[in-house]
């Protein structure tokens, strides 16, 4: 970056340099500097329902679901080292359980959703358990097949409304519960997972990702920890699915659709893998974009696939990592 006799120099803001992991906050200015981004994010998300119209409120809700899925994908891939290409599996399992509890036993959504999230997470974790031994790309490929497997089985058995699905499920009492439920879930999951990855268990997850053999040699059962990680992801994903089935009052095979596996990945890549916030933001950008194109049929999918390719090839760090870097650095010109 040379222009004449000056060059551009980037410096980390001192607050990051002076401390290593521990923040010693010394002034109001620095405190604002640290808190501002979180504040903007939370307040921003929570005011959105107040300013959007009916249609876009719905879009906001589905963006929330994609945000949860993208968050789960990012967590598993970047912090545990399990690349799960089958997020739709969680959506489907959660959605079916919650929907069926409602359709068959008349449970209200606000009860069936939490139950379905936990039950769904347990079930999907148990089903994925045999695959946790698989490494790297084997796990990725097998997880990619699970949603399809679920579809095949439902069709083959002819249960749960088979190919038709079940409609007229209970929806939410009012639009505010509908929206704030998902937004709160997104914020809680985001900060919960951020907290988690900085604790001991998160360190162990990272260890498994970096070098699973060394973790074994440290006396840690990696399958047990992978199971925990998958459970956490499944919990978030199943919540998303359960919420979705009540959002539209409908359950069916499309809960297992590839969209729920791939769009979150696109959002995560676009937002910046490994930043946790990035994938959430990515989902809130990508969903409205793809929604706006719904009229054009498949163009929607083509477009987000192209965005995905563009980011993964030309800007693999994603938006958020880029922004964070910029936020924590300042630039100045210095004489050479």
């Amino acid at each position: 970056m040379l222009t004449g006799d000056r060059r551009k120099k980037r410096l980390d803001r001192s607050i990051k340099v002076r401390t290593e992991g521990l923040y010693a906050v010394s002034s109001w200015g620095e405190m604002v500097y640290l808190i501002a981004p979180r504040f903007v994010l939370i307040v921003g998300l929570f005011t959105l329902p107040l300013v959007l119209d009916m249609y876009w409120q719905r879009v906001l809700c589905s963006a929330g679901i994609y945000a949860l899925l993208a968050l789960g994908f990012d967590f598993l891939a970047e912090f545990v080292g399990l690349v799960c290409l089958g997020g739709a599996f969680f959506v489907g399992v959660g959605g079916y359980i919650s929907g069926l509890l409602n359709a068959y036993y008349g449970w209200p959504p606000l009860l069936s959703i939490p139950v379905a999230s936990v039950a769904g997470a347990v079930i999907s974790t148990l089903i994925l358990l045999p695959c946790l031994r698989l490494r790297g790309i084997y796990f990725a490929i097998v997880s990619f097949m699970f949603p399809l497997f679920a579809v095949y089985i439902i069709v083959a058995l002819g249960v749960f409304g088979s190919t038709e699905g079940i409609s007229a499920l209970a929806t939410f009492p009012n639009i505010w519960i509908e929206q704030y439920l998902i937004l709160v879930a997104v914020i809680l999951s985001l900060f919960g997972i951020r907290r988690l990855v900085s604790e001991d268990i998160g360190v162990i997850f990272q260890g498994i990702k970096d070098n699973d053999q060394a973790v074994k040699a440290s006396g840690i059962n990696i399958t047990a920890y992978r199971t925990k990680a998958v459970f956490i992801t499944a919990l978030i994903g199943c919540f998303g699915g359960a919420y979705l089935s009540h959002l539209y009052g409908w359950l069916g095979l499309s809960l297992f659709a590839m969209d729920f596996s791939i769009m979150p990945i696109a959002a995560a890549v676009m937002g910046g893998m490994g930043s946790l916030v990035g994938p959430v933001l990515g989902a809130f950008i990508l969903t409205p974009l793809s929604e706006a194109l719904r009229g054009f049929g498949q163009l929607r999918v083509v477009l987000y696939s192209l965005i995905l390719i563009g980011f993964i090839v030309y800007k693999p760090e994603g938006l958020m990592n880029y922004l964070q870097r910029k936020y924590h650095q300042f630039e100045l010109w210095e004489k050479v």
Binding site: G21, D200, V203, I204, G207, D210, A214, A217
Partner: peptide, 21 residues
Amino acid sequence: RPYDSLPAFKNLIVPLNSPRV
């Protein structure tokens, strides 16, 4: 076989969390 992305002292958090310890 270190955990490349972790600080050195966090490398030890893993064995320190083992059932034995």
